[in-house]
Each structure stands twice: as C-alpha cells, then as structure tokens.
Design a protein around this nucleic acid. Structure first.
Lengths: 205, 205
DNA sequence: TTATATATGAAACAAACGTTTCATAATCAG
DNA sequence: CTGATTATGAAACGTTTGTTTCATATATAA
C-alpha cells in the first residue's frame, strides 16, 4: 500500500466520526474501518484514541488566518470578518462534519485542546475586538466592546450549532434557500445600524 | 427507604451526569451511585438507559411557558423574552447542568427527543416571531422575520454554549461581573436600534 | 394473621470497548 | 545480496459497558 497515505487517512476518517458521535460515541474500530487500515495503526501512529482525536480537531480548524482585507474601510472589514466566520462553518464545498467537530469542541471542550483555543480562537477574537475599536466611539469601555463582539459572533455560530433545529423550525425548503452572502449582509447591516454607523444605500434585506 | 423518592432521584442524578459527559460518556453505574440506588432500579423504573435520558431532558426543560407580559408594549415584551431566554440558561440559583443538558440536546439532537422539540421549542419560536410581526413594518417578508429572530436568540445561546471559551477570552473576573439584566438590556437595545425602533433615554450601556 | 403485588439488592451476563502482543511483511541503507 | 529498521495484520488481552436474573425484603389488601 501507499505508506504515507495511511498516516493521513486515519485522522481524516476519525474527524468525520468524532464529529458525528463525539469522543466517547465514536469507536476506534469504526474509524479504522472507514480509513481502511488495521486497528494496530492507531497505536502505532498516534499512541491512543485521545491523541488521534486531538490531531483530528487540529486539522479541522487549521485554516490560515483569513483576516479582513486591510485596505478596506472598517465597515468593509467587518463584513469580511462575518462572511469568513460563516464561510468556515457553512461553506458549500466544505464537508459538514468539519464544522460539527469544531463546534463540538468549542461548546464542550474536552480539555485536551486548550492549546488549540490559545492558538486559534484567541487571535481571531483579538481581530474582531480591534475592528470594534475602530468602529465604536473612542474610549468605549472594554466590556461594551466584547458585549458587542458576542452580538456579532453569536448569530454566526447559531446557524451552525442549531442547524438541526433551524431546519425543523423554518422548513427544509427555506433552509436550503439561505445564502451565505445574504446571511453575512444581514448580520452586517443589523450590526452597523445598531452601532449607529451609517451605511450607503440599504433600505432592508 | 422512602419509596417514591427513589423514582425521582434517579432522573435528577442522571441529568447532572448526562449534562456533564453526554449520553455515551455517562455510565449507569455512575448515575446510580450518585442517586444512591441499586443498578436494577434503572431497568425497573425506566427500562433502559435511553428512556432514563429522555426523562432527564424532559424534566430539565419543562418550565412553564413564561411568555412576555401581554399588557406591555412590544418593546417591553421583547426585553422580557430576551431576559427569560437568558434566565433559563444562566439564572444564578439554577444549577448549571440543566442548561448544559438542554444545550447539548439542542445542538446535537439525539433523535429520541423530537417530541420535545415540537412541544417546547416550537411554541417559543412562534412567540418571538409573533413579537417581531408587531415590531417590524407590515408586510415584512417571512424570511427577514426569522433572520431577525436568529439575530436575537443567537447571542442568548452564545453565552451559554460558549461559556467555557468566553471565560478564557475575557477573563474569569470580567465573566463573574456579567449580570443578566445588563446582558438582556444590551441585546434589547442593540436589536431595537438595528430595527430602527426608537427607545426612550438610552445613550449607551 | 395470610396472600399478593411491588420494590430492592447482590451477583452475574454477554457484548463491546481501548489497547497490546507478536509474528510476518515491506522498505531501505550498506 | 544482507541486515536493520519500519510498517502491517490477526488475534487476544483485561476492562468496562448496559442489561438481566433471581432470591429476598417490603408494602398492601383481605
């Protein structure tokens, strides 16, 4: 067989199943079956199930730091930030299990991924807070800045984490017609209006 | 021993542990140990682990329909809705595990609780959409109404579901100082301003 | 009381789990 | 080629899992 392929196929298949069933719910036998490798490979390449899990999470959320285009005005940067936030979770070409794996680790941290929070979550949080520092009036207290940040990131994550329930509530048809640009525009306009920042030509979505 | 107490203590202890570790992660032996009952009681009272889980979820989220006070103006109803939404998850006296159990079932439905979604989630969704029908201009398309609803409910859930990460990002001290009324007011003002609905005397939070 | 239904406890069940072992196969440097 | 290192496969390991069994204890009704 192709040697190096095996070491890569394992965490990939693991990610899909961990996302679907969680750490405890997934079994190594199901993972190695999907990866098409022998069960001993888990021990050989990753020592045990937990380290395989960490590796899978890291690969699922290791995208480059897609910062907003620096040349844009602050409002444009905000729209970009929101759009990329949505894109990460709901991009059409992106496998759905990636988002679910990340969301699972975000809302129920296994503790094994504290390092990943520092390396990945924290920098993005600082980008948004920096953006709000430009958009909000000077000397806005720190607390109001991150309260506003929650108001922006919250809805982005809501689409992903509550996906199963949203499908039921608004109907499958309406859910399928949702477009990422529509969502991003809506959140951006909603935010800018709430902050009292004028935005050219936008009567309503 | 007190007879009927036993049947009640079981799903209560189960809820705590299911919330903490999920359905698969929790073991019946840990549950019966915390409840202080014999392992046979699970089979005797609830047949199996899954039915015990369903019972625990139902009891965690069976609060009465705390609708906004009908006599209030629409803006007041909205604030009430948001406040109760937060209260359900983060009320000081309320055990934290209740919120986590509900959130777990919301974001990763086990499928066994479809009935609970219909009976509990759907009515509350309709209350909010009805409220928005009053607040938004007449003939606002259905899609914009529920997009706006997501903008309101999203942040409420964000506080709960991302609680572990928020604690790290803003610091434990700042997190402890967060007050539910502050949160509710902030979300309400943010929403009303975004909708272009005037609100008396409110320069900023 | 006696008879019947209900509740409890200790022990064991078979199945599934993560992990390990070890013999063999493949790879590669010399 | 030879020898050493690396990779693979089949089988079994010891635990833990959810569930069941059955004898005993308790409550209830006549």
């Amino acid at each position: 067989m192709t040697l190096r392929n095996l070491r890569e196929r394992l965490p990939e298949a693991a990610g899909e199943i961990f996302a679907e069933k969680g750490f405890k719910g997934a079994t190594v036998r199901e993972i190695i079956e999907r990866a098409g490798v022998n069960i001993a490979a888990v021990n050989y390449y990753f020592r045990d199930k937990e380290r395989l899990y960490i590796e899978a999470v890291k690969r699922a959320d290791c995208g480059e730091l897609e910062g907003p285009h620096l040349a844009w005005p602050p409002t444009g940067k905000l729209r970009d930030f929101i759009y990329f936030q949505l894109l990460k979770f709901l991009a059409p070409g992106r496998p759905a299990w990636l988002a679910r794996l990340i969301m699972r680790e975000r809302t129920q941290p296994s503790g094994a991924c504290a390092e990943w929070v520092r390396e990945y979550i924290e920098p993005r949080s600082k980008i948004l807070l920096g953006l709000l520092r430009e958009l909000l009036p000077p000397h806005t207290p720190r607390r109001k800045r991150y309260l506003t940040a929650f108001r922006i990131v919250g809805p982005c994550h809501f689409y992903c984490s509550h996906q199963p329930i949203i499908r039921v509530l608004i109907g499958e048809d309406a859910y399928q017609r949702l477009d990422l640009t529509i969502l991003a525009d809506h959140i951006t306009q909603f935010t800018l209006r709430a902050l009292g920042v004028a935005q050219p030509g936008e009567p309503g979505t």
